[in-house]
Design a protein around this nucleic acid. Structure first.
Lengths: 259, 259
DNA sequence: GAGTGGTCTAGACCACTGA
DNA sequence: CAGTGGTCTAGACCACTCG
């Protein structure tokens, strides 16, 4: 095995072309991590599938098992992979009940679980408004899909979401497809459009309900609402979803963990 | 050093005495982690101080450096320790500028940094109301310190906080002490009262300003406010602070990271 | 240069899963 | 049982900080 520092490694068809200006120092396990990420991104292993065992990968990359392990650890921390002792390491997927509530942080005051019912109010293609285009790194006027939907808990509307997606990557997304699909929306994005949400940033504010919101959420005009603007990213930190949500927090709260 | 599982290890003076009823299995590095946590909690090393080097700890605990390393890694992930290559490993402290914004997640829309100015409105000792007592695991009627304060940004009030602390641990906390102290409040708690905040849980909602809030934040009655209820924990997951904040989010937002 | 954390290896063995 | 991830060791060497 070659040295880890700035130089070419013995990866399969490693292109030692990459002539970077010696950024700082990149340990071997980071390079392995990058290789694994590329394989994930390229779809070599699909969500839910098992990736090769640590020893096999160690052989393939010509490094020790411990180094592969450290790379996988990092990816597992980012929720890109899931380790299961005795079974193997798997590509993470949004199609699991377990992960449902990783992104929706709204909890009913009484702690009951009960999933939310979805209703798609609207789904159309249009040209991206300036602010949406900027957020999604599109050119102003590029096509986007806009989805408007309402989430209800025990028959009561609680969340009004407006969602914008790049029209390019989400051709063929219709209200029907959305309505038919069981399970979390990000599961659909993943299986039908090959877009996997990795992480997201949210900006929260308190606002008051306008006419539209008060109608759709069955609240008086001017009622306080929690505004949640979410920008979601895929591999390579590319933004692929902008979401503006209005949450009725009279019987729910947004939970957060500071650490 | 005792054995990791329920069995004998190859460590030098391994005591194969430990006859536990096989709880689950606790690896060696977890035990080391627990020992280190105890030392931190017991004040063997104070905030900001350097702890012994990895090799020294390895010697002390009669394990390999790698095992100590893994334990320290875990504590560093929890922000209890801070590693500094070439220098050593240090006990984390709130008295650093770096960490200021780990707990206050309010950001001005224009991204400017500028610290917030504090004004202590009130600081009194009283008997804990039922809900406060419950949150802090106190008996109803136990003494608590209540602090009310306002944070301002560029001369404009933005945050109104009500803070409750166990009276027992915070004897001698007065408005003067609070006003005099430079730096983050949690730095004061740490250096003056030996209480270190480790993590916190927050519950967010949208509410409207009542008379008090509108007066103190210079807002019209009924203005939408972000309500943030925070419960903070020290070592051993003991709750030691309840905080109810009202944030004016007209020019600021609460940022959050989903991952 | 001495001392610290950070990387990497090779190998042994343990814990867990499922056929 | 074989195969997977999980733990632990001992030792070598690298990167960083500071006197």
């Amino acid at each position: 095995m070659v040295s880890p520092t700035n130089h070419a490694r013995a990866a399969p068809a490693a292109a030692d072309s990459a002539r970077e200006a010696a950024p700082a120092f990149s340990p071997l396990y980071r390079q392995i991590e990058a290789l694994l990420t590329r394989s994930l991104q390229g779809g070599e292993w699909r969500p839910g599938e098992m990736i090769p065992s640590e020893v096999e990968l160690a052989g393939r990359f010509k490094v020790s098992q411990g180094t592969v392990r450290k790379a996988i650890d990092a990816l597992a921390d980012e929720h890109l992979l899931v380790r299961r002792q005795g079974k193997g390491t798997f590509v993470a997927t949004h199609a699991e009940q377990r992960v449902q509530f990783r992104f929706l942080r709204l909890t009913p005051d009484d702690g009951e679980e009960g999933a939310m019912a979805r209703r798609v109010v609207d789904c159309r293609r249009l040209r991206a408004p300036a602010d949406v285009a900027r957020a999604l790194s599109l050119k102003a006027g590029d096509a986007v899909v806009q989805v408007r939907r309402v989430l209800s808990f025990r028959g009561r509307p609680v969340v009004l979401d407006d969602i914008w997606l790049p029209g390019n990557a989400f051709k063929g997304l219709t209200a029907e497809r959305l309505a038919q699909y069981k399970g979390p929306m990000y599961g659909l994005f993943e299986s039908e459009f090959g877009v996997r949400m990795i992480r997201a940033e949210e900006k929260l504010r308190a606002v008051t309900a306008d006419a539209e919101a008060s109608a759709l959420l069955a609240l008086p005009l001017g009622a306080p609402l929690l505004s949640v603007e979410r920008l979601s990213f895929t591999y390579g930190d590319r933004p692929v979803e902008l979401r503006r949500g209005l949450y009725d927090t009279t019987a729910h709260y947004y939970r957060n963990e500071l650490s």
